[in-house]
Design a protein around this nucleic acid. Structure first.
Lengths: 310, 310
DNA sequence: GAGAACGATTGACCTAGTACACTGGGCCGG
DNA sequence: CCGGCCCAGTGTACTAGGTCAATCGTTCTC
């Protein structure tokens, strides 16, 4: 019989150990939680924590944060299927926001924005879905921050090339490349409202600076910057839509393509769209060319404005 | 006692009529189904059908396809609280595709595309969710067809005004108005790929025709048409995003606005975006002006191309 | 030694899309 | 007259996805 001088936590440890060895608690069973111990034996949480730690040191129980403590199987006998799922050469360091965003971006780049579900993202990071909510407020904000992260990727050259035209071409092409790499980007944020996406604001600021000294009002400069950004969007969205359509049909891709082509053929062959029928495929599939065309038209139009202000 | 020479369906009709008049079957009660009649009286389905038709002709019962047949109320006496939920001055004719699309569009116009769920749409039409699948293959196609329907709304003037510039301005502004009315439109379809949306193809065809006789290659004309359509999209999307953001926060709108403004203020006040900080709100909120600006720039640039081909 | 704060985790709830099977009336060939 | 086939509509139910609430072990602070 232990003396009453013995520390309380030792007494409790001995008691629980006895129950385990008696088979009263079997391997795999849930231990009482720290709080339950504290209440049942009338001790503080810290004491119960100590009890837990001692039992764990003795190898009698195994603890998994957030999931409780279970009686471990006796040594020499191994568990059948390890619950660990993922690779992780990385030592599973504490999740951080940046890592979450980069992973989400990686998924979206390859499989589209729709593939980025909280569950999917969590699985990729080898955590529970709810863990993500420590780092982002919700799905919506996740997407916004993904956009912010992506926009922060490229370095904006600090003086930039000479002349407004070269500068505007540079920023527009840079955004075009950005959207090509991250096809989900145009669908994620409103380009016209760069507010609340700091790295997008940086782009707008850069463009506004490029328009310095042309004698334009601030309103015009702002309109020009927004319009320039806007040129990229629809073209990139088209590209995204196409890729997505191809992916989501999966195995039946060929079949889908066939039916689409057939349907298109029917409509075009119907005689209702004679002009449309003559030009197809070649132009529409060259989205790079389309973007350059619209950029050139716009910049020429803007040049006219600069040279001959109203 | 009817003679056995009398046709069986007449005998059954008389029997049922008697039960109705006796109050055994009351107004609103479900009639036995055709198959039940066929089985109970040991006759063929067609015979039972005839019974049904006769009763309906006599005004004793009312039939609703797919929902069974009920005893109708005697004339002059109207139902107290109709189980009908919705307005429907229309006599709830058999659901047709057009009606489905118009209703979906109505929902999307007011509450955004997200509000258009199969369940919501079905409820609005007072049918079960699955009934919709008789008319549209699925959610995705529903949206596509909504777009098609919406694009078909405006009449495209058949010769149109004189001169390419007037024509292009007309079609661009028409699409802009269309998108203002149906804010969900730009998010629903890829403008660059008008394939499979016939009424969108009509717009493109119209635009291509407007570019006739300018000595441009077909590729250039196609690019021009697509670019013109594309001008509308990002601006309209911004408008949609804004409206949506306001709606989805609901009651906490003021709170949300406040926090947004505060956050914007912090970023703008941080000194990182000095130019952006000077021009705000006034320009960005005038989306009509922004659209007109970008259209003017583009058309001027295009004019240069027409006058001086490369 | 006690308790608050924290990050992680599970379970449960709600919404949404839609496959499946069934019922009901209409119609056609025997 | 009969049997069977077809289409429209419906109810059930399964799955996926976003998110709240409760709970767990740990740590930091009095």
């Amino acid at each position: 019989m232990p003396s009453s001088k013995e520390p309380p936590y030792r007494r409790i440890v001995a008691e629980i150990r006895a129950r385990i060895q008696a088979g009263d608690l079997r391997p795999g069973d849930r231990m009482p939680s720290i709080r339950q111990i504290a209440q049942r034996w009338g001790v503080a949480v810290a004491t119960a924590t100590r009890v837990m730690a001692t039992l764990r040191d003795e190898g009698l129980v195994e603890t998994k944060v957030g999931a409780g403590t279970v009686i471990s199987t006796p040594a020499g006998q191994k568990r059948p299927a390890a619950p660990r799922r993922r690779q992780d050469a990385a030592p599973k360091q504490a999740l951080d926001r940046k890592q979450v965003l980069r992973t989400a971006i990686a998924i979206a780049d390859v499989e589209g924005l729709d593939a980025v579900s909280m569950r999917r993202l969590a699985a990729e990071l080898d955590v529970g879905p709810m863990s993500l909510y420590r780092h982002v407020a919700g799905k919506h904000e996740l997407v916004t921050q993904m956009a912010d992260e992506a926009f922060g990727e490229p370095e904006l050259p600090v003086p930039g090339p000479d002349g407004w035209r070269a500068k505007l071409e540079l920023i527009a092409r840079l955004q075009w490349r950005l959207c090509r790499r991250h096809l989900w980007l145009p669908g994620a944020v409103s380009f016209i409202r760069p507010l609340f996406v700091p790295s997008m604001m940086a782009h707008t600021e850069w463009t506004l600076r490029a328009l310095d000294g042309l004698g334009l009002t601030m309103s015009t400069r702002m309109r020009e910057a927004l319009t320039l950004h806007a040129l990229v969007i629809p073209v990139a969205q088209s590209m995204a839509a196409e890729v997505e359509a191809e992916q989501e049909t999966g195995v039946t891709l060929d079949q889908w393509r066939l039916s689409q082509r057939k349907r298109a053929g029917e409509l075009l062959g119907s005689g209702r769209f004679p002009l449309l029928a003559t030009a197809q495929e070649d132009v529409v599939s060259d989205l790079d060319g389309l973007f350059e065309y619209s950029l050139a038209r716009h910049l020429n139009g803007f040049a006219a404005l600069v040279e001959d202000p109203p």
